[in-house]
Amino acid sequence: MITIKGVSHRYTMGKKAKETVVPVLRHINFHVQKGEIVSLVGKSGSGKSTLLHIIGGFIKPTSGEVEINRAAITAWDEGRLADFRLQHIGCIFQNFQLIPSMTAAQNIELPLILNGTSKQIRDQKVADMLRQVELEAYPHHYPSELSGGQQQRVAIARALILDPPLILADEPTGSLDSDTEAELLALIRKLNKQNGITFFLITHDQEVAAIADRQLEIKDGQMLQANGVMPV
């Protein structure tokens, strides 16, 4: 599902003449199989989010290649990436990233609208999805009128509505209490078992990491091997 080949990334900052270069990722290689739940752990600032953004196509790596579903996306332009992301990748962000002027139902409906789905099918799919994330009582609530956990479920529903084969999540439980967190983890496991969706989760929470089939660890921009040893 995800193949990362020799990916390195450096951020360039400051003005042209006196720019500073911050190396963040160094020669990362790994592979995630279809239907796997993989978690990525690492210290703050180790480059987890950067890696996730590269996989999602938001940043182009300085070098190396990314394949999603056998598509080499690294060289694509923004338009093609956007279309691909809409169909193949569901993204769950740290701060939910819901549109505040839209209700829960409208936020969930958004990918369907972008996709050009007809209104009739849209209404039906949104209703189904609201039921699946147990928000059928809150379709007309605005994000500001929902609790953190509810907002997170709206974000998940929005990521799932087009049935993408891959979900990327950055700290999905970051701002949730332990009960809500447990519910969310149960939902992720259910979706993985029932629909065979691949999950790539960033977390520094051991409970989240525990539901993963496999755990990757990043340290100083380098991927540690399964035994926790730095690659040579």
């Binding site: 956007a82 279309d83 809409l86 169909q87 990748i89 549109i99 958004l110 990918p111």
Partner: peptide, 13 residues
């Protein structure tokens, strides 16, 4: 909002 829409997969066009 534009950022969120683009993140979801709205085409710049």
């Amino acid at each position: 909002d534009i950022g969120i829409m683009k993140a979801i997969g709205a085409n710049p066009k």
